[in-house]
Amino acid sequence: MIGYLGVDVGSVSTNVVIIDEKGEVIASRYLRTNGKPIETVQKGLYSVGEEVGDKVQIAGVGTTGSARYLVSMIVGADIVKNEITAHAVAASNVVKGVQTIIEIGGQDSKIIILRNGVVTDFAMNTVCAAGTGSFLDQQANRLCIPIEEFGDYALKAKNPVRIAGRCAVFAESDMIHKQQLGYNIEDIIAGLCEALVRNYMNNVGKGKEILPPVVFQGGVAANKGLVAAFNKYLGLEVIVPKEHGVMGAIGAALLAREATKKTGQTNFKGFNIKDISFKTDSFECNGCSNACEVVQFYENDELIARWGDRCGKWEMSTR
């Protein structure tokens, strides 16, 4: 059987999926990146490789996410794509005719507008990461509620309280204040979900024409409280795909399928990259006062790539 591999390495999670020729997911992994993209990818790849064994022959690999270039060198990618395109491709494949994609990840939130299957507009959060996955993680931690149950609490609320959602620091102090006044925790959590949605709509979604079908994806879509809050705000039912947490990786795999169709070959290095040693080191270039931190990337002690310099002096012709 022929399969395509997609790897999405983001700030919080690393996702690995294998799809078949029709685009159905055969295997997937959702791992925490924990700041170690190389090891995490090696682990994830090895693990899906064990699951599918010899049954699947990988015919193409795609990478996406903020570490997409780094990871492309580890896995031998055929295509490297930005997260927005990858998410749009995946959502279009799962929900035919999708017109709006809401994607909230660990540190990014985006909105993608499609018309007739083509991305016509998109926006990403600018400098502030309030309302993304990491903030919810923190708040769950502070309230000693497992993040998986956060949504259930919100759904039990009768009267969500109003929380300031513009800034994570304001939101936190507002929540504490409301706790001290004696509001119950369900209403506060539901209020937080509504605040995040309000903030998202004002910040990322401002001025965008949101038409159904609306797909809600990214790790945060697992939170039922936020799904309910979006439904309430938009006055429609958002669609949360079954594989909402790994949509970026699915998109990368679909793009790899397309890319390798033309070339008929893949650069895939195999699942068993666990034994290859990848390492990076860095040095400060003193060619000029920019003092760029140049990263060097080694495969089995052989230097195969460099990046991080602004002028291109250290660039290597690997890609």
């Binding site: 903020s66 930005n82 997260e83 927005i84 083509v118 991305v119 016509t120 990403m124």
Partner: peptide, 18 residues
């Protein structure tokens, strides 16, 4: 900046193609 530019350029190319 790179992610936004890449996505923007992708979008423009798809629009052009269709």
């Amino acid at each position: 900046v790179r992610t936004r530019i890449e996505a923007f350029v992708d979008m423009l190319r798809y629009r052009r193609a269709t």
